[in-house]
Computed example of a mutant assay.
Amino acid sequence: MRRAQGLIEHLFMLAVAIGVVAFTIYVVIGLLSTNSENPKVVISYVDYNPPGSDVSGEYVLITNEGSADVDMGGWKLMDESNHVYTFPAGFILKAGASVKVHTGEGTDTETDLYWGRKQAVWNNDGDTAYLYDAEGNLVDSCSWSGKEGGAVSCH
């Protein structure tokens, strides 16, 4: 009888150990898959002082460095003076793709969006571009001093 009780205790401890290992593996795999699916959308480049007219040449390049497409409908691009561009509803930035947000006027496409402004937004002597998601969370920012030569790489 004592021997059977000892065997049952050992089997119970083995089952608990297997359960702990299985749970640990489940958590680690879950964290790894969650991290790989998190969107990583960044401001990658700002052409704040292009040759010619600022309003027709200015743009901000937004890049999806993540592995999943991102619905950017309702996201906002802003400067320090609170000029706000709101991404159109249903705009999807595909994984690995970029989109230029132009200050001036034009026809929106998958790779080019237009703010439609008649005046420049980005200050040539220094400014910051801010990117917010649809919930108002700051996703990324990029600052410059004006000494970069008219454009700045942010990442």
Rank of each mutant, 00 (worst) to 15 (best):
D133N: 08
A151Y: 09
S145C: 07
G106C: 08
L77G: 05
E58I: 00
D69I: 04
I43V: 14
D69R: 07
V152N: 09
D108C: 00
W115F: 06
G96S: 12
Y26M: 03
G146P: 00
N124H: 13
L138G: 10
K147F: 13
V101I: 10
S143T: 02
Q119C: 02
A95V: 10
H102Q: 04
N38W: 03
S81R: 04
S143A: 08
D79R: 10
N123Q: 13
L32H: 04
D108Y: 02
A134G: 06
G57C: 12
L61R: 09
V60N: 05
S145A: 06
A4I: 10
A4N: 13
Y45V: 02
N35E: 04
Y114A: 04
P39G: 08
L7S: 10
V20W: 00
I43T: 07
N137G: 08
V55T: 03
G90W: 08
A4S: 07
E9H: 12
E37M: 14
G96R: 05
M78V: 04
C154V: 03
D47V: 15
I62Y: 08
E65Q: 12
V20F: 02
D79C: 00
Y59M: 13
G66R: 10
D112L: 00
S143V: 01
S53F: 02
T107N: 05
E58C: 03
D79V: 01
E9L: 14
N82V: 12
G90M: 09
L131E: 10
Y114M: 01
L131S: 04
Y114C: 03
T34I: 06
E110T: 01
D54T: 02
I29K: 13
E110R: 05
A120E: 09
A4W: 14
Q119G: 01
G57F: 02
G73T: 10
I8N: 08
V152W: 10
G149N: 07
G96H: 04
A95F: 06
V60W: 00
L14F: 07
V41Y: 02
S67L: 15
S153V: 11
I43N: 13
V21C: 10
Y85M: 10
W75I: 04
D108L: 10
S44H: 05
N38E: 12
L11N: 05
E148D: 13
Y85E: 05
S81G: 06
P51K: 12
G146W: 01
A22V: 15
G6S: 15
E148I: 11
F23Q: 11
P51C: 05
I18V: 11
I62G: 01
S141Y: 06
N137W: 04
I18F: 09
L14E: 08
E110A: 12
E65A: 02
I92L: 05
V139H: 08
L113I: 06
F12Y: 15
H10P: 14
K147R: 04
Q119R: 07
D125K: 13
K76H: 03
D71N: 12
E148C: 01
V99E: 11
A22E: 12
C154R: 08
N64F: 09
A97H: 05
D79F: 00
